[in-house]
Design a binder for these strands. Structure first.
Length: 419
RNA sequence: GUGGACGUCGCCUAGCGGUCAAGGCGCCAGGCUGUGGCCCUGGAGAUCGCGGGUUCGAAUCCCGCCGUCCACCCCA
């Protein structure tokens, strides 16, 4: 089929039959966030492009090749939001949220845009549920955020997930580690892949999670980041692990886990589903103690996560998790004749005012066709209004599940439909 | 951005150089006069993703583009 217009590459329409999944995820996320004391925040879909360049990092893939950047008619450089954290921090500063009791706990569900090549579970527009806890450096807050993410998956019905955890140090110890790492790699560049030679220059930390077979021996011998944490970072990390243990949240230490944004410090984590696709993380996050300062605010520690709703739904389907289905129509009103049509419209109107989901037949089709419609719609009752009913002021109520049917006075219909 | 597979009615699929492109699901209608789900019958619905090329002749072969999927990159 060739349509003149189709949804742009990497975007999708979410049809009614998909919505139960979305409702399930959104409702559960909102409920949990509330349970943890987080308040909802919505930020614009677009922001000054510089906001992301500054925070996410000049050299990151997101900034280098994945941002939707455009100029508006006033000449402003804007970007469709490629991640959720920076806008929330911007709002935190803009509205003086530092003057509120710290930490400030915020959550959002928002569309995210990245110009990369779509495949299963990866889109140019996707949606994230995210949480940011700003203004406190306690590892207890890291644990809280991780617990929230972990319980979300549990509540949703996902199983077999693994939480990967690491600490990548802070402004003090990371540069020292990167120097050690560079030193280690400097005489081995001829033994690693071309990408790694590039990473050596641009983003040395990423050397650690190269998947190339040939690079594995080099990685195996590389100095571990966690052996080079400063005392404060090591202590912070140790406390966090203690809290997670106390909360009974299982995690795997993943010394090679680094994340794609420059703003992370100390804690980083990802959650992976049991079946590994190419891009499998369904959620990830970490601490970003320097981000607010980078935006011109006071030094403000913070921690948060983002989790992809499309990927959650993908895994709900893979694991055949049954999600609550919305209630369908209760009543389908069929009628015969122009007279009855008016009665049908009035009856439907009355039912809806009583909170009973009601659909009226259209097109003056045969009663048989209307009944077929009622069945196809999944209605619980068919209400039949023909000349006979109009004349006697009655309605025939047919329960579609078993065909039980009776004709009763119009006034009694409402009470009959709600047991 | 790199490599690969695929693209036939709304959905799933057959056809794989030669009459009007076939079937299932779904949709619409009918199966005697006011009634669904099963069954039967009929109908609508496809420029065979788009554009070029090869050929007497292409859905079937070749090229380009678009899209989907897979791997890489990266990420949720």
């Amino acid at each position: 089929m060739s349509l003149r217009y189709q949804a742009p590459r990497g975007t999708q329409d979410i049809l009614p039959e998909e919505q139960p999944y979305w409702d399930w995820v959104r409702d559960t996320a909102a409920r949990l966030a509330g349970l943890f004391g987080y308040g909802r925040i919505d930020t614009p879909v677009f922001e000054p492009a510089a906001l992301f360049v500054r925070t996410t990092g000049e050299a990151t893939d997101i900034v280098q090749k994945e941002m939707y950047v455009f100029q508006d008619r006033g000449g402003q450089e804007l970007a469709l939001r490629p991640e959720g954290t920076a806008p929330v921090c911007r709002a935190y500063l803009e509205h003086g949220l530092h003057a509120r009791p710290q930490p400030v706990r915020l959550w959002y569900i928002a569309p995210i845009f990245r110009y990369d090549r779509p495949q299963a579970g990866r889109y140019r527009q996707h949606h994230q549920f995210g949480v940011e806890a700003i203004g406190d450096e306690s590892p207890a807050l890291d644990a809280e955020v991780i617990e929230l993410l972990w319980s979300l998956y549990g509540e949703l019905g996902l199983s077999g997930l693994t939480l990967r955890l690491n600490s990548i140090g802070d402004r003090n110890c990371r540069p020292a580690y990167v120097a050690v790492l560079r030193e280690y790699y400097s005489d081995k560049l001829d033994r690693v892949c071309a990408d790694c030679r590039d990473r050596f220059q641009r983003n040395p930390l990423r050397l650690l999670d190269c998947k190339q077979e040939s690079c594995q021996p080099v990685i195996a011998g590389a100095p571990a980041l966690t052996d080079h944490l400063c005392a404060e970072c090591a202590e912070h990390f140790a406390q966090l692990r203690g809290y997670l243990d106390a909360l009974g949240i299982p995690y795997e230490l993943e010394p090679r886990l680094v994340r794609g944004f420059d703003y992370y410090t100390r804690t980083v984590f990802e959650v992976h589903p049991p079946v590994e696709g190419a891009q499998s993380a369904i959620g990830g996050g970490g601490r970003y103690d320097g981000l607010i300062e980078e935006l011109g605010g006071p030094p403000t520690p913070a921690v948060g996560f983002g989790t992809g709703i499309e990927r959650i739904i993908l895994n709900l389907k893979r694991q055949e998790v049954a999600v609550p289905q919305g209630r369908g129509v209760q009543a389908f009103v069929a009628y015969q004749g122009a007279q009855a049509r008016l009665s049908a419209l009035r009856l439907a109107s009355r039912l809806r005012r009583q909170g009973i989901a009601t659909v009226v037949a259209t097109g003056d089709r045969s009663l048989k066709a209307q009944m077929r419609q009622a069945d196809a719609r999944g209605a619980r009752y068919a209400l039949i209004l023909g000349p006979r009913e109009v004349e006697t002021g009655t309605v025939t109520v047919r329960r579609l599940a078993d065909g039980h049917q009776e004709t009763l006075p119009a006034e009694e219909v409402v009470s009959r439909l709600r047991p």
